[in-house]
Design a binder for these strands. Structure first.
Length: 500
RNA sequence: GGCCCCAUCGUCUAGUGGCCUAGGACGCCGCCCUCUCACGGCGGUGACGCGGGUUCGACUCCCGCUGGGGCUACCA
């Protein structure tokens, strides 16, 4: 019916560590494209200047490659529809925003953040949908020109009808109806001139000739805005399918405070990429009764079935991943292959060199190496609440310190000894304790012992994901902070930051 | 609060009105194999959230409730 070649994309935002949900979404897009002999594109959505980093982009690409997914077009491999990095396409978005402005489908808005905030608070208090009230829509052309000439900062907003219904056709969910009156007049161009996701994603999907968009469920509620944009531009929108969000065991959205979420975590933990991808594939399309669950990528693509992609949010079941990974290790790896994987995993020459340098001054026999460095080759450590009794701090301070570590470490732009040391320093200051005393429980949580090779080096070597895992584990042992505690403790840190 | 999505064993799911006294996988339990453990084999535990309809017949269709989730930013 439609002779157009199938083109799908995954569009991660380089604002943090690669998320396993990104791999999940990428896999679906990959499978569909491959199954139809189409193209799978990787696009970087870095329109958030404040949060996007080149390092994050690099790591995300590396992580997706590690998973075994290859894209046909992308910022690193190029392609006929480039550039594939939104920050390099500013002029394109500007011209399309201008088009909307001219046609009256968008307008300049000079409202201050404070006014918007007050408006929303009032709307919510009145039990209404929070939605831009259209004040700047009442200004005359001259008034807009005047304000602009006066140097007033402004954003460009999408004009949304006050009445009528928008129908979003989801490939699996069917038609979803939204009253336009419940759709906000989204900002399309920020005051810094950068487009928001909404504008950029629509323009790019059109220009890059994307035919099918498989994306996370969190986008359902902004689909009407996107559809509106397509219609304003006179473009044919792509087919949409919203995939369920991966969940924590308590069914909430998978979050790194509670669970491993980073692709890098799985690598650091010693999962094989084939197993991870296989596990995700099982979440996308379950096997038939009696069919083997061990599937390589070609098999995953072959049996991919759009009609049977689930829409209920699955809990990410680590136990099942463990089982699958075990099968890969014992069924798919021959001895040389196994050795190679182990080498890639943890004993690269660089890593070994670094470990040796840290360990050598502290041992008397080579055989001391095993116990001293075992924690660097382990997943979960065998700790109990008693393990922390040798720490200098009181129980509450320990929990506070570890919990603050969990949040502080995630804020670090780069993961190295220096940054880690400063983070610990900040935590110590926030708690009014000495750094060395605060470091003690971290030694125990991370290395398994109060005496070990240097903590900060160990943490860098172990990687942020494994450190996070160990802190989570320690906190589980000592008592996971309640929501209230978490809030109180965080404020401790914030007030400290304000002083600095 | 408002808008939207979802709902089968603890978990992932099969099931698209009769094939279902609901099937498979992970987990858990037991037995077997075995120098330990693991693997492997065999068996077991265990679910259609609730209430109304529709129908000769509902896990399957409709409505309500309840529960869970997402969004509600000049973040994506």
């Amino acid at each position: 019916m439609n002779p157009t070649r199938v083109r799908t994309r995954v569009a991660p935002s380089p604002t943090g560590d690669p998320h396993v949900g990104t791999a999940y979404v990428a896999l679906v897009n990959y499978c569909f494209a491959r199954q139809h002999g189409g193209e799978f594109i990787l696009r970087i959505e870095d329109t958030d200047r404040a949060r996007s980093t080149a390092e994050s982009e690099r790591v995300i690409l590396e992580a997706l490659r590690w998973c075994g997914l290859e894209w046909d077009e992308g910022p690193d491999v190029g392609g006929p529809f480039g550039p594939y990095r939104q920050s390099e396409r500013s002029s394109i978005y500007a011209s399309y925003a201008e088009r909307l402005l001219v046609s009256g489908h968008a307008f300049k808005c000079f409202c201050t953040p404070q006014r918007l905030e007050e408006m929303r608070v009032a709307q919510r208090a009145a039990g209404l949908t929070s939605r831009y009230d259209g004040r700047c829509l009442t200004y005359s052309a001259q008034e807009v020109a005047q304000r602009e000439a006066a140097g007033e900062p402004f954003v460009v907003r999408l004009r949304v009808p006050d009445e009528g219904v928008c129908v979003v056709n989801d490939l699996r969910r069917g038609p979803i109806e939204f009253e336009y009156s419940s759709v906000d007049m989204q900002v399309l161009v920020k005051s810094d001139g950068m487009p928001t996701y909404h504008l950029a994603n629509v323009v790019d999907d059109h220009l890059m000739e994307i035919t099918h968009v498989f994306r996370g469920e969190e986008w359902v509620s902004s689909a009407p805005k996107h559809l509106l944009l397509y219609s304003y531009f006179g473009w044919q929108p792509p087919q949409l399918l919203h995939l369920p969000l991966l969940r924590n065991p308590d069914k909430s959205k998978l979050s790194k405070r509670k669970n491993p979420t980073g692709i890098l975590f799985f690598r650091a933990m010693g999962y094989l990429p084939e197993a991870l991808l296989n596990f995700l594939a099982l979440l996308v399309n379950a096997v038939r009764d009696g069919e083997d669950e061990l599937l390589d990528l070609p098999a995953i693509v072959r049996r991919f079935d759009l009609e049977h992609v689930p829409i209920g949010g699955p809990v990410f079941d680590l136990a099942k991943l463990d089982w699958l990974n075990g099968r890969y290790i014992r069924e798919r790896l021959d001895p040389p292959g196994f050795v190679q994987r182990v080498a890639e995993w943890a004993i690269s020459p660089e890593r070994l060199t670094r470990m040796a340098a840290l360990a050598a001054p502290r041992i008397e026999r080579l055989s001391d190496l095993g116990p001293l460095l075992a924690f660097l080759f382990s997943g979960r450590l065998a700790l109990t609440a008693q393990s922390f009794e040798s720490a200098k701090l009181d129980a509450l301070s320990i929990r506070r310190a570890l919990s603050l570590g969990l949040t502080e470490f995630d804020k670090l732009a780069t993961w190295n000894v220096f940054a880690i040391e400063r983070a610990i320093g900040r935590i110590a200051a926030a708690l009014g304790k000495k750094s060395r005393d605060v470091a003690r429980p971290f030694y125990i949580a991370i290395t398994g012992s109060p005496t070990s090779i240097p903590l900060y080096d160990s943490m860098e070597l172990l990687g942020r994901d494994l450190v996070r895992e160990r802190l989570r584990n320690a906190l589980d042992l000592l008592g996971t902070p309640s929501k209230r505690e978490l809030q109180e403790w965080e404020s401790l840190l914030q007030s400290d930051e304000a002083v600095v």
